[in-house]
Design a protein around this nucleic acid. Structure first.
Length: 271
DNA sequence: ACATTGACCTGGGAGC
DNA sequence: TGCTCCCAGGTCAATG
């Protein structure tokens, strides 16, 4: 499920219940995720306090005195907090229990998610060390994108979905941002002008902020909840709307595939 | 260095 | 009802 706004919303939802709390034990029911959960994770985490909890790209980092847990939700992962006993369902793979009685539960039907342990600076871990700037920081700008795109022949959509270019822009928000910036997704990255990249950087920031704002209204869904979080309350203008009419010009929206990902756009509005 | 494709998994919906 | 096929919000690893 998660794109950056959903991961950010998850972070904000669980933070009040787990930050500064001490772990009593963890239960691993299904250790084969994208990579195996380290066998010694329980021993490493036992009795540790969560000293810091933050998001980098779509990764969540739980820092303790002796190392850090790096967690990714993959395509279908969820985290929820329980304070009462809830029987584990089919895809509830990991529980992290805290001294305050809270249980942080990781659920992931497709098991593309990951829980890894590192004892170095998490930023130096191979998964995090080559990631581009966070899209909601000043370092991410139209000028940055334009400079980075020089000599790049990939489609502009594929370019902005590359985590080494910018962190955490997934298929939905890439598709939507390109529509808002009026850029055709299959154009070569190097052919996009500085002015267009400025519009694109602005569109990415605006839509991510808006989606996080929307997600913020559903924070309760991470606590003692069986229901699905309110992802996608966002009104999407093109994603998933192929063959429907463009909301701006009425033209029929087209579906193409770029780097094996569905891509919807308006052939009239996007140049 | 860059670009493309395969791989990892399960579930849900369309079509027959 | 049930089978087969295709698709899904990610991204690393291998290959050209």
């Amino acid at each position: 499920m998660p794109e950056l706004p959903e991961v950010e919303t998850t972070l904000r939802g669980i933070k009040p219940y787990v930050l500064h709390q001490q772990i009593t034990h963890i239960i691993v029911r299904h250790p084969t995720l994208r990579w195996p959960i380290p066998a010694h994770l329980d021993k490493k985490l036992q009795h540790q306090q969560i000293l810091n909890l933050y998001r980098r790209a779509k990764y969540l980092v739980f820092s303790c005195a002796n190392g850090s847990l790096i967690l990714h939700l993959g395509m279908s992962g969820r985290l929820r907090v329980f304070t009462d006993k809830q029987p584990a369902q089919k895809h509830d793979h990991v529980d992290i229990h805290f001294a305050n009685g809270a249980c942080l539960r990781f659920t992931d039907p497709r098991r593309f998610g990951a829980l890894l342990w590192t004892e170095e600076d998490p930023e130096k871990h191979t998964l995090l060390s080559n990631i581009g700037p966070e899209p909601l920081t000043k370092a991410f700008s139209g000028k940055y994108l334009w400079e980075k795109a020089q000599g790049k022949k990939v489609a502009v959509k594929t370019f902005i979905m590359n985590g080494q270019v910018v962190a955490g822009v997934g298929n939905i928000y890439a598709t939507e941002a390109l529509f808002n910036a009026k850029i055709k997704p299959n154009k070569k990255a190097s052919s996009i002008t500085l002015q267009q990249y400025e519009a694109l950087a602005t569109a990415i920031k605006t839509i991510l902020k808006y989606a996080i704002h929307k997600g913020g209204t559903t924070l309760k869904d991470f606590y003692n909840s069986d229901g699905k979080p309110g992802y996608f309350s966002l009104e999407l203008k093109v994603y998933g709307r192929d063959d429907e009419q463009c909301t701006v010009c009425g033209n029929k929206l087209k579906l193409i595939r770029l780097a094996q990902r569905s891509t919807v756009f308006c052939g009239v509005c996007q140049k």
